Amino acid sequence: MSEDPAAQQQRKKTFDIEQHLLVEAIYRRYHYDFRGYAQASLKRRLQTALTRFHCRTVSQLQHLVLHDPEVFPAMLEYLTVQVSEMFRDPTYFRALRETVVPVLRTYPSLKIWVAGCSTGEEVYSLAILLREEGLLERTLIYATDINANALQKAEAGIYAIERVPAFTENHARSGGRTSLSEHYTAAYGRVVLDKSLRKHIVFSDHSLATDSVFAEVQLVSCRNVLIYFDRDLQDRALGLFRDALCRKGFLGLGSKESLRFSSHAGEFEELVPQDRLYQKKGGA
């Protein structure tokens, strides 16, 4: 027997209220701000979390989050999206090589910010690209995320060996100048990225929702993060990127992201539109 439409609507309304109360509680208790995240996406992730934590309602989940200190770190795995691969969207990395790297060569030293770095695949991709282009030795990469567990995995630089064929194919399609195998060692079903890559990377906790700019950089790469934010939080994040970028610095976004509807659109020029590469305008 199907549920009465009125009851369905009431259940949805209750879920929405509970969702709002949960993210507000998380903000007040743990200072992680998910209030500006896209509600539909957040709802899907909470529904998965309900099953994982054996809760019938979001209110029950909220009780666990507030009263069991071991639950919240596990909850972060559901609230933050940890999906990545090395050289994901290879044409993006090819565009970096062909369009951005020639300009980066003109700087005596480089700082790059990878925002929302997840478990580190994109950071290491950039580090390998920069090594291949002879720029890594003068580069410092800031890799930030709000998920401490993801940052720990990123810093370890260890990935399942069955993922390597896809990584290798992406790397080749990105215009890679070396064999990807030169940058890792393999053993016991895992690959470990070269430690000499990691010495050029600083992994750090940073929230695009609440934290400020911490350095001036020549390139910001924040891909497939803004799609999970509402419009106001997208604007806040883009404002941080604008403030962090030096004059005529570069911004890279994900394939489904754009500056088009942002209040900051007028402050950037489209550099490689199809690969979501932008350049900050060179005002005074």
Score class of each variant (00 low, 15 high):
residue 20 H to F: 15
residue 105 R to M: 11
residue 114 V to E: 01
residue 36 G to N: 06
residue 215 A to D: 02
residue 57 T to Y: 07
residue 176 G to I: 08
residue 9 Q to F: 09
residue 157 G to T: 03
residue 73 P to Y: 10
residue 108 P to I: 07
residue 182 E to S: 15
residue 237 A to R: 04
residue 45 R to F: 14
residue 143 A to I: 01
residue 14 T to P: 10
residue 273 P to R: 10
residue 83 V to K: 07
residue 3 E to V: 14
residue 264 H to W: 13
residue 177 R to E: 09
residue 119 T to P: 00
residue 47 Q to G: 15
residue 191 V to Q: 01
residue 188 Y to F: 15
residue 235 D to R: 04
residue 74 A to M: 12
residue 276 R to E: 01
residue 112 I to W: 03
residue 109 S to W: 11
residue 82 Q to S: 14
residue 51 T to P: 08
residue 41 S to W: 05
residue 53 F to I: 05
residue 268 F to S: 01
residue 141 I to W: 02
residue 162 E to N: 14
residue 244 A to Q: 01
residue 72 F to M: 07
residue 226 L to F: 04
residue 153 K to W: 08
residue 53 F to K: 06
residue 135 L to F: 06
residue 192 V to A: 13
residue 82 Q to N: 15
residue 189 G to R: 07
residue 92 Y to W: 14
residue 208 L to R: 01
residue 49 A to K: 05
residue 172 A to E: 14
residue 246 C to F: 01
residue 65 V to R: 03
residue 76 L to P: 03
residue 266 G to K: 13
residue 64 L to P: 01
residue 34 F to C: 07
residue 37 Y to T: 03
residue 118 S to A: 14
residue 241 F to L: 02
residue 216 E to V: 10
residue 156 A to P: 05
residue 179 S to G: 12
residue 169 E to P: 06
residue 27 Y to G: 02
residue 203 F to Y: 08
residue 78 Y to K: 05
residue 278 Y to H: 09
residue 1 M to R: 07
residue 11 R to F: 10
residue 210 T to W: 04
residue 167 F to L: 02
residue 87 F to Y: 06
residue 184 Y to P: 02
residue 238 L to K: 00
residue 128 I to D: 03
residue 114 V to L: 00
residue 282 G to T: 05
residue 155 E to P: 04
residue 201 I to G: 09
residue 209 A to F: 04
residue 58 V to A: 06
residue 5 P to S: 09
residue 190 R to N: 15
residue 184 Y to K: 01
residue 34 F to Q: 00
residue 174 S to K: 06
residue 125 S to T: 06
residue 268 F to W: 05
residue 102 P to F: 08
residue 163 R to D: 13
residue 228 Y to V: 04
residue 162 E to P: 09
residue 148 A to C: 11
residue 101 V to R: 00
residue 283 G to D: 13
residue 210 T to N: 05
residue 33 D to L: 06
residue 116 G to S: 03
residue 90 P to T: 10
residue 126 L to R: 06
residue 207 S to G: 07
residue 50 L to M: 05
residue 210 T to E: 08
residue 8 Q to I: 12
residue 60 Q to N: 13
residue 260 R to L: 11
residue 267 E to I: 08
residue 255 S to Y: 11
residue 41 S to I: 11
residue 20 H to P: 10
residue 47 Q to D: 12
residue 268 F to C: 08
residue 118 S to G: 02
residue 179 S to L: 15
